[in-house]
Simulated assay, not measured.
Amino acid sequence: MSDLVARTGRQQQRYEDGHRLVAGCIPYRYRYSDDDSGGKRKKTIEVLMINSPSGPGLLFPKGGWENDETVEEAAEREALEEAGVRGETKDLLGYYYFKSRTQKDEFCPEGSCKAAMFPLLVKEELSTWPEQSTRQRTWLDIDEAEQHCRHLWMQGALVEDFLKWHADNTTDSEDQ
Rank of each mutant, 00 (worst) to 15 (best):
E66V: 04
E174P: 00
S37H: 11
L152N: 11
S100M: 03
Q132V: 05
R41Q: 15
E73Y: 08
R31D: 03
R135H: 09
E82P: 00
Q11R: 14
K43E: 13
L152V: 09
D143Y: 02
E125S: 07
V71T: 07
N67S: 14
R77M: 07
E125F: 02
K40E: 15
A6L: 06
T70P: 09
K42T: 09
Q132M: 09
E69Y: 02
K164N: 15
K90V: 02
T102L: 15
G64N: 11
L59R: 08
S2M: 11
C149I: 12
L48S: 07
E174C: 00
K90W: 04
K114Y: 04
R7P: 01
I26Y: 00
Q136N: 14
C25A: 13
D36T: 07
C113T: 04
P56E: 09
D17K: 13
E110I: 10
A167M: 14
D105G: 00
Q13W: 11
Y32M: 00
K62H: 12
K99L: 09
D91H: 08
K104D: 01
Y96G: 03
T44D: 11
Q132A: 13
V85P: 00
E106P: 01
H166M: 05
R86V: 10
S127N: 12
G63H: 01
S112M: 12
